[in-house]
Design a protein around this nucleic acid. Structure first.
Lengths: 353, 353
DNA sequence: TTGTAGGCGTTATCAG
DNA sequence: CTGATAACGCCTACAA
């Protein structure tokens, strides 16, 4: 009935009017982009407080500036699974560092194939980081590129001109294998990461390998097979200690066919294998040598130090963040190849004769 | 020189012109908010493909709609530390579920006290979830409320009218303590979560407790002390296995003062204590009973099943998400109290005589 | 230092 | 079913 009909949120224009200044002046007071006389400034702030104005609307500001201050991170699979992997969390950590100069927020997204609406297509982001680019991620990539957003792909092949952050997975795996071979092992079994999004726990056949989509798994396996071409390989359903236990049991069940060394594609899997060995009454490394991959800080291995290849997980994230920052500055993003460092631990030893 | 001066991204207006329709029609084609004749639709899509138009700019759409489709999650401390805690990841998982109907993205934010720019103040979000509301989070809360955004606080007291998701931490802790007391234990020590953002590893004195700011810690401790009023309590520096090991060593070092049971405020801490016990040559539960809290799926406890209280972590996130969805729909958010379920495992047994 | 004006790219509304 | 028009709230040349 009265003039209170529309109690809509005040805008910067209202504040300016209340303070008796131009809207541009009020705007500048909040953005700090120019000098304003202290007196004017005070009046604007007072008016804002008076009206309950909490600062510029970020949505309007994004449109005007053409920047939202948000970077999307696209993860494969369920969010929870992703963060269960210490490598991912380390990576995220580095990413926040690398993005620090932008003071950008991180928007978590899954690469949901079918779903509408939720996707990257409708998110107000300035750039995108794709992690573990697999077949499913490809569609996300297309959308992002179509929208002209800067992209960086971590550990995956995005083709042509997309900057990537890669690891020398094959070479590092070969290093580990060589170490084990030099210790005299000939009878070696492998535990790999999942081959595809099916995440099946199964012996790897040439056909299956041909259909594999996860680059990390493929590359690490290729590196290992440079040294042990015929080693039995079983894919785990994920990078988890419990998966390592399960696969370890399969591998160690039959004393007749039991290998003298097991090379796992992740430290978590390796820990699981060690646990399976303990269950079976085998001593590590006397009866069985075990190596991992990643070099994450392992919680709960007792006095053993895992033989592994230490990957620069945090560095990976940081590098991605830095490339994003560059691209947002208008400079071209560049692909970076990071390398792992071999660590000889106490979980590998001379082959039992 | 030529007309190619400004190769700016095409807008929906360009597409409409190219297709020979009104911008509003083109808009509707993309949003699907109204029926469009198939022929017209095709023409618009063709024009879009032609011009390389990848769909409406989300920034402009957010401004117009007044919605960005993003919900912020404010975590305490370093991102990595937060995701190291399985309870947090489970919670995030539930949150994505609860938010599913909104198909909203999740923006990760830290509650950085001093820093400018990065904060919640400038993020284009529709709502905010505050986790583990501590003193530091208060300032975030003020900003958010000032901006008139819907908020839900998980496990923390936000005062007055802010909807919360809470747990019966005290009651559940008392349940565990009672179980242990009924097993005959009288000599019990406690390992708590951090008391405040200082995260000091130290014996808890009444003064320290009075200055504590983390509600979860305080409530769980209060519940336990209903049963064991005088039990020695040591605060850990975080919810980590390794912290549990450190505090466990402190507790078990001296055989003369060694307790017969240790109650930890998180499962991770409990696992650490068990590990410390193993180090000290103690058998669990024969020589030492250990209980945790959370009921997370523990990776790597061998055959032991931890005595604990299972908190509905996923449910907590889901509930928060649902409240956010409600509030965004215009309905008032309501506070929800969730309850834990006691789980008697094999890590607790009769007190040694 | 302060004010004026125009537009960022959409979408809601309402008339045809 | 389609089209014209008016905001959404802000920022930034440019002019005074």
């Amino acid at each position: 009935m009265s003039s209170q009909e529309t109690p809509r949120r005040p805008t910067i224009a209202d504040v300016a009017r209340e303070a008796g200044v131009a809207t541009s002046t009020a705007s500048v007071v909040f953005s700090g982009k120019a000098k304003v006389a202290p007196a004017t400034r005070e009046r604007v702030l007072a008016a804002a407080a008076d009206l309950g104005y909490a600062g510029p609307d970020p949505r309007a500001a994004s449109l005007r500036r053409g920047r939202s201050g948000i970077v999307a991170v696209v993860l494969e699979g369920h969010l929870r699974a992703a963060f269960l992997d210490p490598v991912t969390t380390a990576l995220m950590d580095g990413l926040t560092d690398g993005l620090a100069e932008l003071s950008a927020g991180i928007l978590l997204m899954r690469d949901e194939p079918g779903e509408e609406g939720a996707g990257i297509a409708d998110a107000p982001v300035d750039a995108v980081v794709l992690i573990g680019c697999s077949a499913r991620t490809r569609s996300s990539l297309e959308i992002v590129v179509g929208r002209g957003l800067p992209v960086v792909v971590i550990e995956g092949d995005a083709g042509e001109s997309i900057p990537r952050i890669t690891l020398d997975n094959a070479a590092a795996s070969a290093d580990i294998a060589r170490h084990v071979r030099d210790l005299g092992h000939r009878d070696v079994a492998l535990v790999t990461l999942p081959l595809d999004t099916e995440r099946e726990r199964t012996a790897i056949t040439p056909e299956r390998l041909a259909n594999a989509t996860v680059d990390v798994t493929i590359h690490r396996l290729a590196g290992t097979r440079e040294i042990f071409p015929d080693a039995l390989a079983i894919s785990a359903a994920g990078s988890l200690i419990d998966e390592g236990v399960l696969v370890g049991r399969m591998l160690l069940a039959d004393p007749a066919t039991r290998p003298t060394a097991v090379l796992a594609q992740s430290d978590l899997l390796a820990v699981g294998v060690i646990r399976a060995a303990e269950e079976a009454g085998l001593r590590v490394p006397e009866d069985l040598s075990v190596a991992g991959f990643d070099g994450i800080a392992l919680d709960g291995l007792g006095d053993l130090s895992l033989t592994t290849s230490v990957q620069p997980a945090v560095e990976k994230g940081r590098a991605a963040g830095e490339q994003i920052a560059r691209m947002l500055r208008g400079e071209p993003g560049i692909t970076q190849h990071l390398t792992c460092r071999f660590h000889a631990g106490t979980t590998t030893g001379p082959a039992p004769r």
